[in-house]
Design a protein around this nucleic acid. Structure first.
Length: 103
DNA sequence: GTCCTGACGAGTA
DNA sequence: GTACTCGCCAGGA
């Protein structure tokens, strides 16, 4: 029957799960790779993520490098801490340095 | 079956 | 340079 990545949501999960450690991806990038029309679906997919332990939502950031405001794991500070711990570089404004961390 | 909301992005004023 | 609005899709009530 249908494969795992047959739905847009599953595709988003596949992409996010494939983000390497120390790297981040923007909602737009995920939406394009997942073949979704709007990045909004990506955010919604992560919001209803069924495998938060396998889906590093903290590696998905805004196209401007900002972190997710509604981080479901604890908050932006936790998200930032995790990303820093993985080797992701941050700028002085508290946003991810996409120039070095963008997948 | 229908309406509203929602973790965004880009364009325009 | 900043702020606001519009468009898009999917899920839940």
């Amino acid at each position: 029957m249908k494969s795992d990545s047959n739905n847009s949501f599953d595709r988003v999960y596949e992409i996010v799960k494939k983000i390497p450690k120390g790297k981040v991806m923007t909602y737009k990038q995920v939406s394009i790779l997942a073949n979704v029309k709007t990045p909004r679906v990506v955010g919604f997919a992560l919001h209803v993520n069924k495998d938060p332990q396998n889906i590093p939502c903290h590696r998905v950031v805004f196209s401007n490098g900002s972190l997710t405001p509604g981080y479901a794991f604890g908050g932006i500070n936790v998200q930032m801490k995790k990303l820093k711990d993985e080797g992701v570089k941050f700028k002085d404004n508290g946003v991810v340095d996409l120039s070095s961390s963008l997948q």
